[in-house]
């Protein structure tokens, strides 16, 4: 065993006491006299610590800085991206951690030529078991609470209209089941703006957008930036799904059972609308576009197409 500087030893002791409850030393102190001086000449406890730090910081860095998502173009999307960053960071740390543990043990405890004995007859360790039950449980609890919060901010918990216990007395048409984003956020972020109602009809293999206010029927969805949109969706034949990746929103469009979806676009542009539920041979071709425009442009589009010209909203 190498000579460890006193302070380093103290720090490592302190930190390992922090990170691993006492009693787990059995597992980790094997390393103190490990056969892997070829890796780092100083204490392997410090080395373990460095690796742990590396995994932690590396994982967090990747989680925060690697962007795997497309443009965020709705109120919902920014909230989603926060959640994604958190999940990605936690996931990367965990994944790197396990990979490092597996690879290290394969390197360190590999049977060397000429060795014949068995490993250590350790059958378990209660403290360790409690430790690695508790830590994931806490992580999961945190993730659960956080994603609940995000879900709520996206408007997922908003009580949907007509989805109470009186459903039996209701007619079939009124029973609406909803998607996320029927949102308080949208209304909060866009004070006073009334939502644009749009009826969506999906069929093999197209979307139709019906604007009741102007009696417009369009194959493309036009919406003004910054204003909430309420969609009521129903399918004519099989299940389809309305998905705009840039909005981070998806909702199945179901025959016989209308669903609703609300969103507030925040960036102008043309984004794909994709059918995300297998609906037949041309499922892959069932696409449309959502055109998010400046309010003026939207108005002129609206006026041009409206059957009954109406006053400005």
């Amino acid at each position: 065993m190498q000579e460890i500087p006193c302070t380093a030893r103290l720090i490592s002791k302190y930190l390992s006491a922090l990170t691993i409850p006492t009693g787990c030393k059995g597992l980790f102190s094997i390393t103190l006299k490990g056969q892997w001086s070829f890796v780092v000449p100083t204490s392997s406890a410090i080395f373990n610590l460095l690796i742990a730090l590396f995994v932690l910081i590396g994982g967090l860095w990747i989680g925060q800085n690697v962007n795997l998502l497309p443009l965020d173009a709705s109120v919902n999307a920014t909230v989603y991206d926060q959640l994604f960053k958190v999940l990605f960071s936690i996931g990367t740390v965990l994944f790197l951690g396990i990979v490092v543990l597996v690879v290290l043990s394969l390197i360190k405890f590999r049977r060397k030529p000429g060795q014949t004995g068995d490993g250590l007859p350790i059958e378990g360790n209660l403290t360790l078991e409690i430790f690695w039950t508790a830590v994931p449980a806490i992580v999961i609890l945190f993730v659960g609470l956080y994603s609940y919060d995000i879900y709520d901010r996206m408007g997922g918990m908003a009580t949907l209209p007509n989805n109470g216990h009186e459903h039996l007395s209701m007619s079939k048409e009124e029973r609406i089941w909803g998607g996320i984003g029927s949102s308080e956020v949208s209304s909060a972020a866009n004070k006073g703006l009334t939502a644009i109602p749009i009826n969506v009809t999906a069929m093999q293999f197209a979307f139709l957008f019906h604007y009741p206010e102007g009696e417009i029927i369009s194959g493309e969805l036009h919406v003004p930036v910054g204003q909430p949109v309420n969609m009521r969706m129903e399918s004519k034949d099989v299940i389809h799904a309305f998905w705009v990746p840039e909005f981070r929103l998806k909702q199945d469009v179901i025959p016989g059972q209308p669903t609703i979806l609300s969103f507030t676009p925040t960036k102008t542009g043309r984004f794909p609308i994709i059918c995300a539920e297998l609906c037949g041979p041309y499922h892959g071709g069932m696409r449309s576009t959502v055109v998010v425009e400046e309010p003026e442009n939207y108005q002129s589009w609206f006026q041009k197409n409206a059957k009954t010209p109406i006053s400005e909203t």
Partner: peptide, 21 residues
């Protein structure tokens, strides 16, 4: 959580062993 327990236990099984790779 229970799945994680299994994974950590496997890693702990490897750890300190005489692994034939």
């Amino acid at each position: 959580v229970p799945t994680g327990i299994k994974f950590f236990n496997w890693v702990a099984t490897l750890w300190g062993g005489r692994i034939s790779l």
